[in-house]
């Protein structure tokens, strides 16, 4: 019984790591642009489809190469999407258009997948072997999910604090006007942040494909849970997502275990509503906007 709960918690943490990575990918774009990309979930699923078509039952070498190509490919797709999204914001006073355009891109990606692949869930073979925890076989992709979260957390940390471009993106989120006055190439930095968010969700989608439902309609589930993870952790706080993501994952798994699998998304929705009602800045977020 106890070990059963432990296994569920571990799986919850693993699933939650996916949410956390998606939440971090939200954060980098939101920091640089104030935009929340509603299409991020479908970009994530694109990574899963790439794993199915490019790297199902292949050797480690080809798998690694395809992982890289998938990441870069989806980074390019999201950068193009970002370019389109930013276009109307350039001149007009209309600052809400991104909400509509990212939602419609999300619908377009899902529709394209539906048309070309049908409404089926594809199963992907794991390249990493499963391992045993408390006597239960656990798919290797769970370990990959956690590893990916940790990797991206530290990679982003390094990028945002050590590299010139990363520092510039941080500067953008701290004081937009001062960044422009300093001559930082705002538009290019924003596109780079979109591309990085694509790289993140693309690679993670690829890595965890064996343990998720790779289907055209699954994207929404991940964009939702990723958002809940971001809100729980406090929007803008990557460290917060490390707690927020696994928390949401564990809640979802425990709900599935105690109540039923169909209630997972309902549980996430309830968590979201409760947090927004009682602690809208998140568990670890600071009150007030940082941008001056």
């Amino acid at each position: 019984m106890l070990s059963e709960i432990l296994i569920i918690v571990i799986r919850g943490i693993a699933i939650g790591s996916i949410f956390a990575t998606i939440a971090m990918s939200f954060n980098i774009v939101h920091g640089a642009t104030n935009i929340f990309n509603f299409a991020q979930g479908n970009m994530f699923i694109l990574g899963g489809f790439a794993a199915y078509f490019l790297a199902n039952q292949v050797g480690l070498g080809q798998w690694s190469l395809m992982l890289l190509l998938t990441g870069l490919g989806i980074a390019a797709v999201v950068a193009v999407q970002g370019y389109i999204t930013l276009l109307p914001l350039r001149s007009s006073v209309e600052q809400d258009s991104w909400l509509i355009s990212t939602v419609s891109v999300s619908v377009i990606v899902a529709a394209l997948l539906m048309i070309t692949q049908g409404p089926f869930a594809y199963s992907v073979q794991s390249v990493v072997p499963s391992f045993r925890i408390f006597g239960t076989r656990t798919p290797g992709a769970y370990a990959l999910a956690i590893a990916a979260m940790i990797f991206w957390f530290f990679a982003l940390r390094y990028f945002l604090r050590r590299t010139f471009i990363g520092l510039a993106i941080s500067a953008l989120s701290q004081d937009f006007d001062a960044a422009r006055a300093a001559g930082l190439p705002v538009r290019r930095l924003q596109l780079i942040s979109f591309a990085i968010s694509g790289l993140m969700v693309g690679t993670v989608g690829f890595l965890v494909a064996p343990v998720i439902s790779v289907s055209p309609d699954a994207g929404l589930k991940y964009v939702l849970n990723g958002f809940v993870a971001a809100v729980v952790g406090g929007i803008g706080s990557n460290a917060g997502t490390l707690i927020g993501g696994p928390l949401v994952g564990v809640v979802a798994m425990l709900t599935a275990y105690k109540v039923g699998g169909a209630y997972q998304d309902l549980a996430s929705l309830l968590v979201l509503v409760l947090i927004l009602m009682f602690r809208p800045q998140g568990l670890f977020g600071r009150v007030g906007a940082r941008r001056v």
Binding site: V231, A262, L266, L272
Partner: peptide, 29 residues
């Protein structure tokens, strides 16, 4: 309306979108 008392914009978009995702799931379950 309840979350709308506290938050606006994309927060509310996500809440309502989630509800629209969850609703048919509940009908099935």
């Amino acid at each position: 309306a309840l979350p709308a008392l506290r938050v606006q914009g994309f927060h509310l978009g996500f809440v309502t979108m989630s509800a629209a995702i969850v609703f048919p799931q509940l009908l099935v379950t």
